[in-house]
């Protein structure tokens, strides 16, 4: 079976106008405009399987949303090829658009002045959803997202979290199998974020949907994504599971110890490098793959009464990975093969 999403050497270059500050700069730009080429996405290649939930990780401006928009067919790439749901996003037409959905956390498709039910009806007509399919899907979404009391309230009077739930329902009425989610929990409180995450996992389980998401909330990534694509300055730095990313960037695990009476630093130092020692607490760093064995040995030594193995925060692992990438010089880009897209 083919992949749900395939991107090969995907690149996007922008030309942006630049000008010096002040009136002089403005006048100079008027008579002699200057431009700078920006590489938003640089030769990205990856494949995503059906039913996978994959997250893009990266700082602002890394190229995450640009990539998502190219996969959705909104942006034309400067070079490279993409296949999503068996289609070319720029020539796939209605067949392609009926298989995907795009949810933008900071933009809404709900009719602002009308209750969400009206947007649902509009989408039913636009996507040509048969009435029986629509009713079944609507019922399922309303139940899963708890939308019952919201359907007759104008969208503008809903809270941010309520609106996002309705956005998701509107975006999923046609049962897309590929979901592009750009910051789906942006600005939501913890409870609403959790509800959205649980819903997305449930939707994936019911429909074997493939999801590609961007989020600045690590809780979204850890709760949803089985795999991350780490991007910086448009280039793919890492493709794998979060655990693998953590293991690669932080080869040590930290063991928190509750010391027994009379335990000394010398006793503890035999098991790993002491990070902190202040009776009755101490922490030591040990190689990741020796953490379990080291913990058992410490307990058996009698120097401690309790041990707890800690993974470093994922944010730290990601920060380290980006720092590592920043220190790595980028090889020069090969010449691009220009695309001649046909709308």
């Amino acid at each position: 079976m083919s992949h749900a999403i395939t991107a090969q050497d995907l690149s996007k270059h922008y030309r942006v106008k630049v000008r010096d500050p002040g009136l002089r700069g403005a006048l100079y730009a008027l008579v002699s405009p200057r431009y700078r080429d920006v590489t938003a996405v640089d030769r990205l290649s990856f494949q995503i399987e059906h039913g996978e939930i994959v997250a893009f990780l990266g700082p602002n401006g890394a190229g995450k949303t640009t990539t998502l928009k190219m996969l959705t067919g909104l942006l034309y790439p400067t070079a490279g090829t993409v296949t999503v749901a068996g289609c070319n996003p720029w020539t796939g037409g209605s067949a392609f658009k009926s298989r995907i959905t795009l949810v933008l956390g900071n933009k809404q498709q709900l009719l602002w002045d009308l209750p969400p039910e009206e947007t649902f009806r509009l989408n039913k007509a636009i996507y040509g959803i048969p009435t029986e399919v629509y009713e079944a899907q609507r019922t399922e979404l309303v139940d899963l997202l708890g939308l019952g009391p919201l359907l007759d309230t104008p969208a503008r009077q809903l809270s941010l979290g309520e609106r996002m739930k309705c956005e998701l329902a509107a975006a999923l009425l046609h049962r897309p199998t590929i979901l592009m989610l750009d910051e789906p929990t942006l600005g939501l409180d913890v409870t609403a974020q959790d509800a959205i995450r649980r819903f997305l996992l449930d939707y994936r389980a019911r429909h074997n949907a493939t999801m590609l998401l961007t989020s600045h909330y690590m809780a979204d990534i850890t709760a949803l994504a089985s795999r991350v694509l780490m991007i910086d300055r448009g280039r793919l730095l890492f493709d794998g599971s979060l655990n693998a990313l953590v293991a690669r960037t932080t080869p040590l695990k930290r063991i928190e110890l509750t010391l027994a009476e009379g335990a000394t630093p010398e006793q503890i130092a035999r098991f790993g490098e002491i990070h902190h020692f202040e009776f009755p607490h101490a922490t030591i760093d040990v190689p990741r793959d020796e953490a379990t064995r080291a913990s058992a040995r410490i307990l058996m030594s009698g120097a401690v009464v309790d041990v707890s193995i800690q993974d470093p925060p994922i944010e730290d692992a990601i920060r380290l990975a980006f720092a590592e990438a920043a220190n790595t010089e980028r090889p020069p880009a090969p010449p691009l093969v220009p695309l001649v897209p046909r709308p």
Binding site: T72, L74, K97, S98, I100, L102, L104, K107, N123, Y127
Partner: peptide, 13 residues
């Protein structure tokens, strides 16, 4: 200008 063209382009219409 407001980015509202995006979801319109993602629909089959």
């Amino acid at each position: 200008a407001e980015g509202e063209m995006n979801y319109r382009l993602a629909r089959p219409l």
